[in-house]
Simulated assay, not measured.
Amino acid sequence: MLTKGTVMRRIWERIAVAVSAVVAVVGAFVGSGAAGGTPIQDAAGGALSASSTAIAPDGPAFSIWSVVYVGLMAYAVRQCFRTADDARHARLTVPAVLSLLLNAAWILSVQFDFLWLSEPIIVALLAVLVWAFVLLRRSRPSGIVEAIVTDGTFGLYLGWVCVATAANTAAVLAAAGYRGSGLSQDVWGVVVALVAGVVGVLVAVWGRGRLAPTASLAWGLAWVAVARVDGPLVSVPTAVAAVVAAAAAVVVTLVARVRTAAPSGAAAAGAAGAAGAAEAGRVSR
């Protein structure tokens, strides 16, 4: 039986998520330039534009934020109607709130030309999303709505922020005057793209083939490839590495998903067979 204190805490958790979601969406509105601010790709002297570094994705890649924000708002609404004893959502409250506030903070840091500050913020955001992914991985969603709104949204969020963190780090280093320690931009582009692919493979294996993180990570890498063959900063090696990395993440995700589903199917078939054998035994007796 839930105590009054527990019920009140659950209510405040819902309010915190809802308010944080509004803050994040308002921040996104400002970051788009619609409220008089400078679009993110043009802010901070264009440090995050498609031509800033070899790992920067092309402009259309950022449209995925619209999907993520819609998902986050849907999640905020969904968790407002959860039951007081919903432990899964209760565990997710803190990382969800932190991710929303860090998202807004990252936008503001870029808008006010504090590019150096954007780096620890986006790294913290990535860590928080990994935390959320760990919590969601521990239990299954209660249904298709939960799987899409909660697991799907935070999965997309994580995969995209993996790519965004790599692009942001490269932009911060370039703005600070780092020139690659003697290595060419092509080499660094290939290395970072392949590292992103390795991260995608690890997430695929550890997440047992969850589709959402891979979908957004592959989306980001695909637009990195587009930017490197059709833009002012051409790097064919980086484009090839980005495509290979995205393909590897997708293939490993599908394999992991099939392997995860296979034991469940075998168990179900085994249970059905045992039940049939037992029924046949009763009939024979």
Rank of each mutant, 00 (worst) to 15 (best):
A246C: 02
L233E: 12
A124P: 04
R259Q: 15
D113Q: 05
A280R: 14
D113P: 05
G182M: 08
F154E: 05
G159L: 05
Y157G: 08
V145N: 09
V68Q: 01
V7F: 08
V236C: 07
A147G: 06
A277I: 10
A247N: 08
L108M: 13
R14Y: 04
W223L: 09
L221Q: 02
S118G: 05
V172D: 05
S49A: 13
S284T: 14
L173S: 11
A193Q: 07
T38C: 02
R88T: 05
L202Q: 13
V149Q: 01
Y69W: 08
R259S: 15
A196F: 05
A275G: 13
A35I: 03
G273S: 13
A44Q: 08
V23H: 09
L102P: 13
D86G: 02
P57Q: 06
V234D: 14
G197I: 10
V252E: 11
A225W: 06
V195M: 01
A21Q: 01
A212I: 00
A127F: 11
A246Q: 07
A18W: 11
I122E: 00
A278Y: 12
A166F: 12
E146T: 07
F81T: 12
S49E: 09
L72H: 04
A247S: 15
P57K: 06
C80E: 10
G209V: 02
A16D: 00
I15Y: 08
V195K: 01
S51M: 10
L211S: 12
W131M: 09
A174Q: 13
L100G: 03
V30S: 09
A212Q: 03
G27N: 02
I144N: 00
V205C: 01
I64G: 09
A54E: 13
R282F: 07
R285W: 12
A104Y: 00
V123S: 02
R137K: 07
G27H: 03
R257H: 15
L158P: 03
P232F: 11
S235D: 14
A278M: 12
L156I: 12
I11E: 12
R78N: 13
A84D: 15
G209C: 06
G71Q: 06
A50D: 11
F133E: 07
G281W: 12
V97Y: 04
A35D: 00
V205F: 00
G281M: 08
A44R: 07
T165E: 01
V192M: 01
I122L: 04
G273P: 02
P60G: 08
V134C: 04
A76K: 03
V23E: 04
T253R: 01
T165L: 03
A74I: 05
V7H: 07
A170H: 12
S32N: 13
A277L: 14
V130L: 14
L108E: 09
V244F: 01
N103Q: 11
G71D: 06
A239R: 10
A76S: 07
G281Y: 09
K4E: 15
W160E: 00
V161M: 06
P95G: 07
V224F: 08
A76R: 04
A132Q: 09
G273F: 09
T3S: 15
I40G: 08
G159P: 05
S63T: 14
A215F: 07
G231V: 02
A271G: 10
I11G: 00
D42W: 02
L156N: 09
L194S: 11
V283G: 00
P60Q: 03
E13Q: 15
G180T: 14
